[in-house]
Amino acid sequence: MRALVYSAAWELSLQERAEPAAPVRDEVLVRVRATGICGTDLGIIGGEYAAKPGVVLGHESSGEVVAVGPAVRDVQVGDRVVIDPTFFCGQCRLCRSGRQNHCERKGETETGVSADGTMAPLHKTTERFLYTLPAHVGFEEASLTEPLSCAVTGANQLRLRPSLRTVVLGGGPMGVLYAWVLSSLGLTGTLVERAPGRRELCREVVDRRWAVAESLDEVCARYARDAAPLDVVVDTTGRMAGDVLPRLARGGQLLLVGLKRHEVPLDVGAIADRSLSVQGSIDSLDGSFATALHLIASGVIPARRLVTHQLPLTRFREGLALVGCDVDARRQGAPAGALKVVLQP
């Protein structure tokens, strides 16, 4: 089978790989129908996020069950499923203390990073990491369950009230999903995106009660009487913590979810004196995957509207270029009028 393989920074190609072996015990073989291009994929390709050389990329996926092991009970051949890629063993110290998203085995089991991912026609996982899709949920929208679950996890770590002044930085799929999750909890706010084409897309897909702005300065100008006007900021860019911290009101919260290596100076005394909270969040936790699937299936979050492009896996370079990743030129740039690009192996 032809799979998209990462070799080193800016080096990836379609390669012939052996099909996974027949499932044993509780294993399930899934024919992948849709895999979203994720910001983590872009970080891996650009060398900003470490991955195992020779790994098959991809982790936002849905498909059909084509084979099951003898111990599988809850799914059967032909079932339409979405794959939770955040493997956890359930036995290590971090798993047993409620940190399954940081399972000690993650260095060998992280789908599309340290273990083969889903940008391939077939992917083998275990029954406990599969969720059956309702008949009305398409494969493409289902592939957004994983990034949505990450947004649910992050939002659950914040202390939220509808009256808080709220900003989401970055109008990519993750930023839009965070805006929708916060909206579902009763918050209104502003999504900030500097790329003009993507900013217009955001205006079409975010909750109508949310504003879309070009810059953080534009948002803060609305509260000219307050030097530090913001209560809750979610930074999906990984680049703006230094700009945000001075603008947080006392008791303000900054959630960091962008996987970029970026250092900023911290005045720890000011953080303590102003009761600021700086929180990181990654992957799914505490049932957020099931919650995300419910939000999509119930129509609370219109995931299908975020999918702007669907391409066969063979056109992966075109798909990456749509989100600003030029593999041949070895550079990341502004997205070319795309939001979520889904590849179809």
Rank of each mutant, 00 (worst) to 15 (best):
Q157E: 14
A155Q: 06
E127L: 12
V152C: 08
V152Q: 01
T145V: 13
T125M: 10
A142E: 12
A155N: 08
L148R: 06
H123E: 01
D116Q: 03
V137L: 14
E146Y: 05
L158N: 02
L164M: 13
M119Q: 15
E146V: 01
E140Q: 12
E140C: 06
Y131D: 04
S149H: 06
T125K: 07
L122F: 15
A151Y: 00
V152D: 01
L164Y: 03
L160D: 04
T118L: 08
V137N: 03
F139R: 00
Q157V: 03
P162F: 00
E127N: 12
T118M: 14
M119S: 02
A155R: 03
P134C: 08
L133P: 00
L133D: 02
A142D: 10
R161G: 07
P162C: 12
E140Y: 11
T153E: 08
T118A: 13
A142T: 01
T126L: 11
S163E: 15
L130F: 11
S149R: 02
F139P: 02
A120C: 06
A142P: 01
A120E: 02
S149Q: 08
L122Q: 02
A142C: 10
R128S: 12
R159I: 14
T132V: 15
P121V: 10
V137G: 00
E146K: 02
K124W: 08
